[in-house]
Design a protein around this nucleic acid. Structure first.
Lengths: 290, 290
DNA sequence: GTGATCCATTCCGCAAGGTTATCGCAGGCC
DNA sequence: GGCCTGCGATAACCTTGCGGAATGGATCAC
């Protein structure tokens, strides 16, 4: 059962003559006659009685009309929704973000929600490895990730971030030159590696670069907790400088000026699966992230 | 939006690979690929992420799937209903009957309901002129009518009926020879002409043939009332002999043996508008009406 | 490397649908 | 009665586009 036939049936039922129905459907009358005949062949029943003054539904036709009208309406709505989806006037945007974009993601998403209120946005906090996998399988439309990204994904850089020493106020970290020695004396609170593989790797890499292996006194499940423990003098921590935004009052962050302490944060997406909603989102980055 | 594309979308979403979906749809994989591409062009969005191990829905595709599935299901149901309608396994039969078929119609319809319980039957009591008009405009599938019928309708004869004198028991009508004179002395109760134009014409014709113009003492709106008034000795009546079936105990019917007292009752339908349900009904007449 | 698997592309044949032109039929109107 | 008009059906033709077969290309397993 074709939408075309359905539409023809409904329109013809509402029109006084075949000719009028054909005009409304923007086809010629013979084409409409053929469609009606095809319908009647399908139903095995005459649906219209052709008279001198046009055509009227038979009893059999009348029993089908209500259902056909409803179906036609729903199909039109579906079409309409498809068009809006294509135009990006409606839709859903599934985004991911992680520790590396604590600062960026919420503000950008807020701006997007403001600009495109018809598009619903889901923002999931996920480890970057999961984000990449979901971008590949299409479960995410885009994600804020640590750069660079695998070559099959596309990405634009948004901001640089760097590691910082988080310590309770009064516990002053030294300059970079003596940081390694200082860290040997100050045990670390750190994020559980499984909760932030990317960040953990970044920290480990930098520490290795500095040539120090500080003691780990505690692991926590999220940055907020790490910072809270730091404020409680349990130890110091190495966190993204952008975590300033979520740091409790008793904690100070001092950026580290070391070779591998810096990285780039960007927005990544799967060029093989860009949605209309995503196409509405991307322009925001050029203006907002530069 | 074509049902074909809808079906393809839903099936592909439920299949691990394009090849599997194509097999389920009984088409080849290139054909399916083209349909999916067409869909994605319509939606302006990639709907499936093609990977090494098949294709999976994107987030955008997932938002469409529920609605598409529902629409697909309803379209299938509509198809199914059309097929059942065509096969006459389901449907609706709008029949008309009148005074001339008081006896025939109910029993035949009861037999049909018994045999084809899936087909709903509407039985309307209508003047024969209205019946013919509704047969022409397709509002009735068939009707029990006084024969003959206009040439654009088809009909098969079912039974003969004849006029009868209805009188209260004890009031014995004479033989046909002296009926005219007897009637001059016995005022008539009759059906209001508008309620049974055919029957009235038949009665008037016969009376004219007999050369008598009896007095009308009362008109009533239906045969039951006519017979009841007859039982109450208000007068006698000329009614179809088949009205025996609905006559109250105090009334006797004596058939009239006069030239224009007899007519044929048949079943008529519009050959230009025969429905599947009607095709199931017609065979009953050959066996049941002969 | 080789084969297997899966999707994309190309090309071809054919059926389906649309248009134009014409017919048949039934009223309505001089 | 003859003619015109309006409506649906039919015929002939043409275009479109869908489906099938063959092939390509990428990726993964062995």
């Amino acid at each position: 059962m074709d939408h075309r036939l359905l539409r023809t049936f409904v329109t013809t039922a509402q029109s006084p003559t075949f000719g009028a129905a054909a005009a409304r459907l923007r086809i010629t009358q013979p084409a409409l006659t053929k469609q009606v005949q095809q319908l009647e062949r399908l139903a095995g029943t005459v649906l219209f009685v052709r008279g001198r003054r046009g055509a009227r539904l038979t009893a059999a036709g009348r029993t089908l009309l209500a259902e056909a009208t409803e179906l036609d309406r729903r199909l039109r709505e579906f079409d309409h929704r498809l068009r809006r989806l294509a135009a990006g006037e409606e839709g859903h945007l599934a985004l991911g973000f992680g520790l590396s974009s604590i600062e960026l993601a919420p503000s950008l998403v807020a701006r997007f929600r403001d600009r495109c209120p018809e598009i619903t946005v889901a923002l999931d906090d996920l480890p970057s490895s999961v984000q990449v996998e979901r971008l590949r399988t299409g479960r995410l439309d885009g994600a804020f990730v640590r750069m660079p990204v695998p070559p099959d994904l596309e990405a634009i850089p948004l901001a640089r971030d760097r590691l910082a020493i988080a310590s309770a106020r009064g516990v002053e970290p030294p300059g970079t030159g003596v940081l390694a020695a200082w860290l040997e004396d100050h045990p670390l609170v750190r994020l559980r590696p499984a909760r932030g593989p990317g960040l953990t790797a970044q920290v480990d890499g930098m520490l290795e670069e500095l040539g120090c292996r500080p003691e780990i006194v505690q692991e926590a499940d999220d940055l907020q907790t790490v910072l809270a423990l730091t404020a409680a003098h349990l130890g110091v921590a190495v966190v993204p400088a952008s975590a300033e935004r979520i740091a409790p009052p008793g904690v100070q962050l001092v950026a580290i000026d070391a070779p591998r302490a810096e990285w780039e944060v960007g927005f990544a997406w799967n060029p093989a699966a860009t949605s209309g909603a995503l196409r509405r989102f991307l322009p925001l980055l050029d203006r907002g992230g530069a």
